[in-house]
Amino acid sequence: KELVLVLYDYQEKSPRELTVKKGDILTLLNSTNKDWWKIEVNGRQGFVPAAYLKKL
């Protein structure tokens, strides 16, 4: 499993997105899109802007 660090808080703006908090370490599911990465948070899957995340 690949992990990502959340660099900035992000509030979901659609049902396909997820809310994340700065400092969270989460599972990366897909990073093929350069702008939006798919991650998992508490069993939910969704997208967060790639600029808000850093691969560990």
Results as ranks from 00 to 15, higher is better:
22 K>L: 05
34 K>T: 15
24 D>A: 13
15 P>R: 03
28 L>R: 01
1 K>P: 14
25 I>A: 02
55 K>N: 08
18 L>Q: 06
15 P>W: 09
56 L>F: 11
10 Y>H: 03
50 A>C: 06
11 Q>K: 15
5 L>T: 06
51 A>Y: 10
11 Q>P: 04
32 T>C: 07
53 L>H: 00
23 G>S: 03
27 T>Q: 12
18 L>R: 04
22 K>R: 15
56 L>K: 04
45 Q>W: 10
11 Q>I: 11
42 N>F: 09
15 P>H: 13
19 T>R: 06
30 N>D: 13
53 L>T: 01
19 T>P: 03
32 T>E: 15
43 G>R: 06
19 T>N: 07
19 T>I: 04
20 V>W: 01
44 R>E: 12
40 E>Q: 10
32 T>P: 03
12 E>T: 12
24 D>R: 04
33 N>L: 09
54 K>D: 07
51 A>F: 15
40 E>V: 09
35 D>T: 10
7 L>I: 09
34 K>R: 09
41 V>F: 15
21 K>W: 10
30 N>K: 07
52 Y>H: 12
26 L>V: 11
47 F>W: 15
55 K>Q: 10
33 N>K: 07
16 R>T: 13
47 F>H: 06
40 E>W: 06
7 L>A: 03
35 D>W: 13
9 D>R: 03
13 K>E: 08
3 L>D: 04
16 R>V: 13
54 K>W: 10
3 L>Y: 10
24 D>M: 11
8 Y>E: 15
39 I>A: 10
17 E>G: 12
40 E>P: 00
26 L>C: 07
26 L>D: 01
27 T>A: 09
9 D>K: 03
19 T>W: 05
16 R>H: 12
31 S>F: 08
31 S>A: 14
16 R>I: 15
48 V>W: 01
16 R>K: 15
16 R>C: 09
15 P>N: 13
31 S>Q: 11
38 K>P: 01
28 L>F: 04
6 V>R: 00
6 V>K: 00
29 L>S: 03
47 F>D: 04
46 G>P: 01
14 S>T: 11
17 E>V: 04
15 P>T: 09
9 D>I: 01
44 R>Q: 10
5 L>M: 13
31 S>T: 08
11 Q>C: 07
30 N>T: 09
23 G>M: 03
11 Q>D: 11
27 T>E: 11
17 E>I: 03
36 W>T: 03
21 K>D: 04
55 K>Y: 12
20 V>M: 06
52 Y>I: 12
52 Y>T: 08
7 L>Y: 03
18 L>Y: 03
47 F>Y: 15
4 V>I: 07
24 D>V: 05
37 W>A: 02
23 G>V: 00
30 N>E: 13
35 D>A: 12
51 A>G: 13
18 L>M: 15
10 Y>M: 01
24 D>H: 07
1 K>M: 15
23 G>E: 02
25 I>D: 00
40 E>G: 10
42 N>C: 08
49 P>W: 03
50 A>K: 08
8 Y>Q: 13
40 E>H: 04
7 L>T: 06
24 D>E: 15
14 S>I: 05
54 K>R: 11
16 R>D: 15
3 L>K: 08
56 L>C: 07
17 E>W: 05
13 K>N: 10
7 L>G: 01
55 K>A: 08
12 E>K: 14
10 Y>L: 01
44 R>L: 12
10 Y>R: 02
29 L>F: 04
20 V>F: 03
